[in-house]
Design a binder for these strands. Sequence first.
DNA 1: CATCGACATAACGACAGTGTGATAGTACAT
DNA 2: ATGTACTATCACACTGTCGTTATGTCGATG
Lengths: 101, 101
Amino acid sequence: MEALADYFKVFSEPNRLAVLDALRGGALNVTAVVERTGLSQALVSKHLKLLTIAGVVRRRPEGSLVFYEVIDKNVFRLIQQADKLLLATRRQQLDALVAIL
Amino acid sequence: MEALADYFKVFSEPNRLAVLDALRGGALNVTAVVERTGLSQALVSKHLKLLTIAGVVRRRPEGSLVFYEVIDKNVFRLIQQADKLLLATRRQQLDALVAIL
DNA sequence: CATCGACATAACGACAGTGTGATAGTACAT
DNA sequence: ATGTACTATCACACTGTCGTTATGTCGATG
């Protein structure tokens, strides 16, 4: 249960989700991720390291560049499912609000 | 993207997952959740409040008791999918380790 | 080998979240 | 009314995480 919570924690950070989103199309090197996200280089490196340790992302040095890529694309399914649930929740919250007014 | 991260954050806490798990069978009052989880009453109240604000759980006072219940049971699907992904990840990490040795 | 670009890491300050113990509020029974 | 269970909230200390700045490292290239 603890491990699962830690896994959820991986996705509980906006910038980390942005980094993941940048990798949606396939492998990218760090600089490319920096450009796509607009985050600082140090910050991107940090998040990529976290994602690597978490086993979500694979690190592949190539010459002087380092490419990162999502290992199991099902993480995008997970993210999508969470997003869907979130929308349903928001809708239900609105309904509940309207019922009061 | 921020909102989605916040939604993931809801599930990124072991005790909160335990509270949710206690509610798997249906509505329970606070004391029942306390008993099932072994957490302190104050802590359970806090987590239940969070879950309520997040729209995951519904609060229903009944006499002197307050029952809580999961609104959309799909959250359990989400949790299960995350757990499945986590397992796959662990397996792949082991494989990668073996490949090195 | 000197340098330059790409990436990683360290150190730090700031802030958010967690758990606890104490206390307050609330319905119910006696 | 008073006491008793149930639930909520407060104040606090503690910890963990985030982002930044600065610096370190490594490979490629001249």
